[in-house]
Design a protein around this nucleic acid. Structure first.
Lengths: 132, 132
DNA sequence: GAGTAGATTGACGTATACGTAAACCTTCTC
DNA sequence: GAGAAGGTTTACGTATACGTCAATCTACTC
C-alpha cells in the first residue's frame, strides 16, 4: 500500500509552501490525483517534485523545467519523437556543461579569496604579537 | 593606453543590451567613469561584467551577485572583515557544491535518457528492416 | 545650421514566481 | 451541532530583471 500525501505534507517534506506546489500544478509541472476536491500525492509525485526543485536550484525557469520533465515521457516507439528528444537533450547537456565550467571557475576564485583571507589573518596575528 | 568602451560596445561584447548594463549600475553592480554624462568602461569593468554574467548563468540574483562582488573588495587589514569574509565564502562554497551535485545528477540522467533514445532508434531501425 | 547618430534620464510595461488574504467546503471532535 | 483544522478556488499584491518608448542632449557631418 502506498502512502499518500496531502499538499501540506508534501510541502513540508521539501520545505516549500503548499502555495508553491499548487502553483506548479497550474503550470503543468505536477498533477496529483484528487479525492473529491482534495489533492493527493503519490511517491511518483514526490520524486517528480524532487526533480523540479533540483532543476530550480540549477536556475531553470518553470517553463524550462516543464520541458525538461517532458523528456522523460517521450513515446519510445515514435522515432521522430526520439530524434527530437536527442537534439533537445544535446542542447540541455551543452547548457549544463557551460554551467559546470562557470561553477568550477567560481569555486576556484572563491577558494583563492579564502586562502588570501586566511593568510591575511595569519600575518596580522604575527604582526600583533600573538605570542604574548 | 587603455581602450575605453561605450555602453553599447561593452554590451555587444557580451551580447547583452545597454539597458541591462545600465540597470546593473542602478543596482550597484558596476560603476563606470563618466566623460561628461557619457559612461566609459575600462578593462576592469569588462572583467567585472564577465563575473556578473557568469554568476547569472549560475542562477544568482543580482543582489547575491552584488554581495559576491563585494567579496573581492574587503580590506585585508581589517581582521574582523576578513573573518566575516571567511564565513560568507564558506556559505557560498557550500551552495555551489550543492549545485555541483545537482548538476552532476542531472547530467547523469540526461545522458541516460540519451542512451535509451539511441537504443530505441536502433531497435526500431532493425525491426523496420533497414537493410532493404 | 540642419540633420543624423548615439548617448542620457525618466517612466511605464511585462513576464516569472510565488505570497497573502478572502470566501467557501468538508470532516472530525467534543 | 458548533467549532476548529485543513482543504479548495479566486483574486489581488509584490519583488526581480529587464524591455520599450519618450524626451532630451551633445557631437559630428555635409
Amino acid at each position: 500500500m502506498e502512502k499518500l500525501l496531502t499538499v501540506t505534507e508534501l510541502a513540508e517534506a521539501f520545505d516549500v509552501t503548499p502555495r508553491t506546489i499548487r502553483f506548479y500544478e497550474t503550470k503543468g509541472l505536477i498533477s496529483p490525483q484528487r479525492v473529491g476536491s482534495t489533492r493527493v500525492y503519490t511517491y511518483r509525485d514526490h520524486a517528480r517534485l524532487k526533480l523540479i526543485l533540483r532543476a530550480k536550484r540549477l536556475g531553470f525557469s518553470l517553463t524550462d523545467i516543464r520541458e525538461y520533465l517532458n523528456l522523460y515521457n517521450v513515446d519510445p516507439e515514435q522515432i521522430e519523437q526520439q530524434q527530437l528528444l536527442l537534439t533537445k537533450i544535446s542542447r540541455r547537456i551543452e547548457d549544463l556543461e557551460q554551467q559546470q565550467e562557470d561553477l568550477v571557475a567560481t569555486l576556484v576564485e572563491l577558494r583563492d579569496i579564502e586562502q588570501q583571507a586566511l593568510s591575511n589573518i595569519k600575518k596580522k596575528a604575527a604582526a600583533t604579537g600573538f605570542t604574548e
